[in-house]
Design a protein around this nucleic acid. Structure first.
Lengths: 258, 258
DNA sequence: CGCGAAATTGATATCGATCAATCCCGGTGG
DNA sequence: CCACCGGGATTGATCGATATCAATTTCGCG
């Protein structure tokens, strides 16, 4: 409503306004958000969270299968997941794809675009989602006058680097069982941090997407699920997973001394 | 000289001063540095580079085989390579290692430490090296009053994310030939950007380190070198490499449609 | 000169990829 | 309401790339 979209042609409207095309022209502030412990303001003292409210983030809905942003698209904002799950995907010119991450509520996406001014990867919704649109320029502007916010932004990017580190370790030196175990333990922990069950959940992604993420083929992912089930670690029914023996599942990751 | 080390006990002295323990108490500024086009000030207009000179970076020498920082060590500074080559290494509790990067003159290391306040990886010198020590707190302090420097820091971290992206793609979806070709082309380009020959160079790392980086065993790396040689792409003699057919070498990376 | 570390090369084993068949389930239209 | 359809998942059989094990060579260095 209070957003721009009056007369300006769409292609010149900043991302915040583009978001406003959707059903949610509502702006959001951090201090009232139920995700504030996980999301952007994580670690920020109360008064600084309130300063963050100066940026009233536009929300944007993204339906299942739709892209939040495409690879090559101009970078202007980072995005915080409010609800739903995204995958981020890198594509090689020959069409090969690599899923570089799955992102759930409270997690930030799109920091890769800052390097070149264009997004290196695409973000696609695995279910109907909603995000906060955080214009990067506004964020840095506010950060300039607030050192703790500045640190939060830095930490945010650093966390992404560390996350990718551990994925590299996984891809470079783990076998199929360790990879899937690491994946499941990671999902479990993140769901738990969001107040969901750590042992029983619904996977939002297909076998082929898990495979791409883990550097395995979908058949191998499926077989490894079956193996874990036969070992009594999991009860699996398609996308529904119940962890029966978290202890042993976790230990898989470091057991094999190879 | 103008640095702190008067009376304060070593453990309370910031990293800059610790560096000064070495043989090079010399401080350095960016505007006079021959690496300014590649390094931290890259993309910064001249007057801002001069502002960067307010931070007079301590230098630190690191001998071959020594660690610049260890995994788990407190994070305080990022490091810019002045000369020599480093590798960064992640270690799993069971001892398995993954080389996450090789770093040459003008490249920054250590941004992974910001996330938790401790370095996630270790940095080890592959030859005798020298670095600039950039205290992170000083950097952000200066960045607060200078938006273009703020952007440079952000871009720096983002570039690291993108770099890791492409390594993930390599580890997740390329075969041995493609991996080694990608590695060689990348090294070649970075050497060229530093004014060295793009087609003939001396690798600073061992086969096992290349293997760890590429997610291959050292024997596979060696065999693939031999294969490339027999294909007429390379002339290899241990660590000395001459690229004979850059065209075909580059095309290996995307040829295989698999 | 001899030692040890790195690299190369060969033989074989193994894990995950590939190809293929089948199953399962939700949605759709007759 | 049921049959059909299609996408996703599972499972089996086989193949192939890379790991593993082992022997040898090369080189730098004391």
């Amino acid at each position: 409503m209070q957003a721009a979209a009056h007369t300006t042609p769409v292609q010149f409207v900043p991302r915040t306004a583009i978001a406003a095309r959707g059903a949610a022209p509502l702006a959001t502030n951090c201090s009232a958000c139920h995700l504030k412990e996980l999301c952007l303001p994580c670690g920020l003292p109360g008064e600084d969270v309130e300063r963050l409210d100066q940026l009233r983030f536009a929300r944007r809905r993204v339906k299942q299968g739709e892209a939040l942003y495409q690879a090559g698209e101009k970078f202007g904002s980072i995005h915080a997941v409010r609800s739903g799950t995204f995958k981020t995907v890198l594509t090689l010119r020959d069409g090969r794809q690599q899923v570089t991450g799955f992102h759930m509520a409270g997690e930030m996406m799109g920091m890769d675009g800052l390097a070149t001014g264009r997004h290196a990867s695409a973000a696609e919704a695995l279910e109907d989602c909603e995000v906060c649109v955080v214009p990067y320029a506004h964020l840095t502007q506010l950060a300039a006058s607030n050192s703790s916010l500045q640190h939060v932004v830095g930490r945010l990017m650093s966390r992404e680097i560390v996350r990718e580190h551990s994925l590299m370790l996984l891809l470079g030196s783990m076998n199929a069982e360790e990879r899937l175990a690491a994946f499941l333990v990671n999902i479990s922990q993140r769901l738990q941090a969001r107040g969901y069950s750590a042992t029983e959940f619904h996977l939002r992604m297909m076998r082929s997407e898990i495979g791409s993420y883990l550097g395995l083929k979908l058949e191998t992912v499926s077989r490894t699920f079956s193996l874990f089930q036969s070992m009594g670690l999991l009860a699996v029914d398609k996308k529904h997973v119940r962890i029966l023996d978290m202890e042993r599942l976790s230990s898989t990751i470091e057991a094999r001394v190879h």
